[in-house]
């Protein structure tokens, strides 16, 4: 083994480690300390057990691949004009593990969906068949969150109220636990409370 190749190799390993360490410090460690110091605010309230279960349904079924949860500053995009809410700040995400900021808006931002659509019936029906509410929607239908029942009503079942013609005749559409939990979570998405704003609160200028 030549000495020159040995020097090359040492340089390679040292350099590769130095560079990756630098990037970890800049993009992982510093954000960790900077956002950790955010004092825990009164709002948002921690998720309830039911909301947490719904959040798990949101994750398991990949809602994140079409919906973001990060309204942007009015100087960047008209998110606020669309009714999606004020620009979000790090404190809004204090209970979020994993984060669900999202990278696509094939569908609208959901950070304040509870404000825009506070109706549980609407959400359940929309999950069952989005096109019954918005003809041009390309959101998938989630029939597996529901079951079709006939016969006498059972205690505690949540029957979905659908627009006429959206469900097969002669059956009633009953929401399963996943659907109810998911809607509980969606109805918790209300970040309209006031926050301290400014650069340190994290809204990108």
């Amino acid at each position: 083994m030549s000495r020159e190749a040995q020097v090359d190799l040492t340089r390679l390993i040292a350099g590769a480690l130095a560079i990756v360490t630098f990037s970890i410090v800049a993009l992982v460690v510093m954000p960790y300390f900077l956002t950790r110091t955010t004092t825990r605010p009164a709002k948002p309230a921690p998720y309830t057990t039911a909301q947490q279960a719904g959040r798990a349904v949101y994750i398991a079924n990949g809602c994140i691949y079409c919906h973001s949860q990060q309204p942007r500053d009015p100087s960047v995009a008209p998110d606020q004009q669309r009714g999606w809410g004020r620009p979000s700040v790090p404190a809004d995400y204090v209970h979020d593990e994993p984060h669900l900021l999202g990278t696509m808006r094939t569908g609208p931002d959901l950070f304040n969906i509870a404000v825009r659509q506070p109706s549980r019936d609407w959400h359940l029906g929309h999950l069952y068949q989005p096109r019954a509410y918005m003809a041009q929607s390309i959101m998938p239908a989630y029939p597996f969150f529901f079951e079709e029942r006939t016969g006498p009503a059972q205690a505690g079942e949540v029957v979905v109220k659908l627009p006429p013609g959206a469900a097969p005749a002669g059956v009633r559409i009953v929401a399963k636990a996943e659907a109810i939990a998911l809607v509980d979570y969606l109805l918790s998405l209300d970040h309209t409370y006031p926050v301290r704003t400014g650069r340190n609160a994290g809204a990108a200028p």
């Binding site: 350099g15 590769a16 560079i19 990756v20 630098f22 990037s23 800049a26 993009l27 510093m30 954000p31 900077l34 956002t35 990060q70 942007r72 500053d73 960047v76 995009a77 620009p87 979000s88 700040v89 790090p90 809004d92 995400y93 900021l101 990278t103 650069r199 994290g202 809204a203 990108a204 200028p205």
Partner: peptide, 28 residues
């Protein structure tokens, strides 16, 4: 070396306009 140095810090551009400190975005 320039690939390693620059590429390792570009990830933040996925969060442009998002709720992250401005310097992360600028760096990226």
């Amino acid at each position: 070396w320039t690939l390693a140095f620059f590429y390792s810090q570009v990830g933040g551009h996925h969060l442009i306009g998002g709720p992250v400190p401005g310097w992360i975005i600028s760096l990226s």
